[in-house]
């Protein structure tokens, strides 16, 4: 119905979200400028990421492959993008040490991008010819068919290290438990809160939530990347402050202020 067509140029119900994004952008710019001015940022050590090198080294010594799983998310999932960032660093290390890397993919688009990322990593360390075509491959876009194929591969090939980074769903425990059964060193990072307990139970190291997104900057150690983590911390401090203020105001009889945290 033409009369029902929305002709507004801005949704006022989302003004709080817009302010939040603009503030975050401001934090990002300020911290990037600080990084360029030579300010150093401290990031607490993340055991899971420190163990990545150990896992790759162990696989090289044992002569067994590393299994990298980018999760079941597609390219619209931020967890998948974070996984690709980590993969660039893992592929680089793998190329330097010369061990085998296997990346079974659930999404064909993720597979194509992972393949390009790995090729580029090999090229950067000057070992382009060592890259094995077919080491990054498509398995299935069916959740449990993917599980059956990957767990079967784990039991047959016995990879020395299993790295789970990205968005995982009900398959998380199947994969992690089977990997645990094979005795592989297991490192996981997931942005799905409901799947984290399963990884914590079955893996040696687990990156909890936001640590997955910080991983790229943590491994790369580039000042501008580290600045983005500082911006994230500022945003978190602001979120805590806003929540505390709204909580106190609600307790003192101003519940209507809770609306500033609601998005339409």
């Amino acid at each position: 119905m033409p009369s029902e067509l929305d002709t507004r140029l801005f949704d006022p119900g989302r003004i709080n979200l817009l302010i939040g994004i603009l503030l975050f952008l401001a934090f990002l710019i300020i911290n990037m400028l600080r990084a360029r001015a030579g300010h150093s940022f401290f990031i607490r050590p993340l055991a899971g990421l420190q163990a990545l090198d150990e896992a790759i080294g162990r696989a090289t010594e044992m002569g067994r492959p590393i299994l990298y799983m980018p999760g079941l998310g597609d390219m619209s999932e931020v967890g998948t993008l974070a996984s690709i960032t980590i993969m660039t660093r893992v592929a680089r290390k793998v190329a330097e040490l010369g061990c085998d890397l296997e990346v079974p993919c659930y999404d064909p688009m993720v597979m194509a991008i992972m393949d390009g990322v790995a090729r580029q990593a090999y090229r950067e360390v000057g070992r382009e010819h060592d890259y094995k075509v077919g080491s990054i491959y498509y398995v299935s876009a069916q959740q449990f068919a993917y599980v059956a194929a990957v767990t079967g591969m784990m039991l047959r090939d016995r990879p020395a290290a299993n790295i789970y980074m990205g968005s995982f769903y009900a398959e998380s425990l199947f994969l992690a438990e089977t990997g645990n059964l094979t005795g592989a060193i297991q490192i996981a990072g997931c942005d799905k809160v409901t799947q984290l307990p399963f990884f914590v139970c079955a893996c040696d190291y687990t990156l909890l939530g936001e640590e997955l997104f910080a991983a790229g900057a943590y491994i790369g150690r580039e000042p501008v990347q580290l600045a983005t983590i500082a911006a994230q911390d500022w945003a978190k401090a602001l979120a805590i402050a806003v929540m505390l203020i709204v909580l106190l105001l609600t307790a003192f009889g101003h519940p209507e202020l809770r609306r500033i945290l609601q998005v339409s």
Binding site: F24, L28, V78, A82, E210, A214
Partner: peptide, 10 residues
């Protein structure tokens, strides 16, 4: 996770 996702996207 939410803040990390926004940060990564930006």
């Amino acid at each position: 996770v939410g803040l990390g996702a926004v940060s990564t996207a930006l």
